[in-house]
């Protein structure tokens, strides 16, 4: 089975996010980068599929030099190959531009199944995986919390939906976007980390992928970021005085009359 995993590198959830000087991007100077946590579930699903059917796992990421660290981590976990999409033409891409670039890479790999995370924890768009499926003309299932391959041509997945879950049968090839809880991602081991250095990491530009530069990056973007704002500062809390009985009475009154949550 040929398996592809789309991997995004995102700021660590513990990173302190500052808005850049232009007011519409993130200042990445002191950010610690990690593999998008949802992509870790995708990666684990890929490794389990490889263990079940044998085959090859290719991880694909778009970005500068740094993204290679994320891909190297996936190679350490057991992916066989990595593909880096890097071109000045990709800069300023919106979700669709990224999806177009990734789609070209997916075509090059020719997988039986593509795994990705349900969203990147930085921009929360939940768009790219679904767009890749659309551009490939493939089915997709997103927010996948359980997965069973029936054979190498179809899978049964459970998706989280509002108030419950639904079970889908999906024909392969397809794009499956992982939710938290799909599996328990494994830890790398030291031998894997050492072997990762020797595994192929192909860097491809737009021309190599046959991408028209006008369809990606700022040139191909259909949405543009106007501005970014940090969340509003939380105002200080209020202390309620009095004995416990008075405090409870006052708290209930505030929750009813002011917060209007009761």
């Amino acid at each position: 089975m040929k398996i592809a995993v789309l991997v995004k590198q995102v700021p660590s959830s513990e990173a302190k996010i500052r808005i850049g000087a232009d007011g519409k991007s993130i200042d990445t100077a002191e950010v610690e980068w990690v593999v998008n946590p949802y992509d870790e579930f995708a990666m684990e699903a890929a490794l389990q599929a490889k263990e079940k059917f044998s085959g090859e796992v290719t991880v694909i990421g778009l970005g500068g030099d740094k993204v290679e660290e994320a891909l190297r981590q996936c190679l350490a976990l057991g992916a066989d190959k990595a593909m880096v999409l890097r071109d000045a033409a990709f800069e300023g891409s919106d979700s669709l531009g990224v999806a177009r670039a990734l789609t070209a890479a997916v075509k090059e790999v020719g997988p039986d199944v593509v795994f990705c995370g349900k969203l990147g924890i930085d921009h929360d768009n939940s768009a790219v995986g679904v767009m890749v499926a659309e551009l490939m003309g493939w089915p997709h299932a997103s927010v996948v919390s359980s997965l069973e391959f029936n054979d190498e041509s179809s899978a049964t997945v459970v998706r989280e939906i509002e108030g419950g879950s639904e079970t889908l049968s999906v024909k392969l090839p397809a794009v499956l976007a992982a939710n938290k809880g799909l599996n328990e991602p494994r830890y790398a081991n030291l031998k894997g980390i050492m072997m990762a250095k020797k595994k192929p990491m192909d860097v491809k530009d737009a021309a190599a992928l046959g991408i028209d530069a006008g369809t990606v990056g700022a040139a191909g973007a259909m949405t543009t970021t106007e501005s970014m704002q940090p969340p509003a500062e939380r105002s200080a809390g209020r202390l309620i005085d009095g004995d416990p009985q008075q405090q409870v009475t006052e708290l209930v009154r505030l929750l009813k009359d002011e917060a209007k949550v009761l």
Partner: peptide, 14 residues
């Protein structure tokens, strides 16, 4: 080295 950093991150996370 990148390898040294990766091992450190692995153990730190574990």
């Amino acid at each position: 080295s990148e390898e040294e950093r990766q091992v450190q991150q692995l153990v730190r996370r574990w």
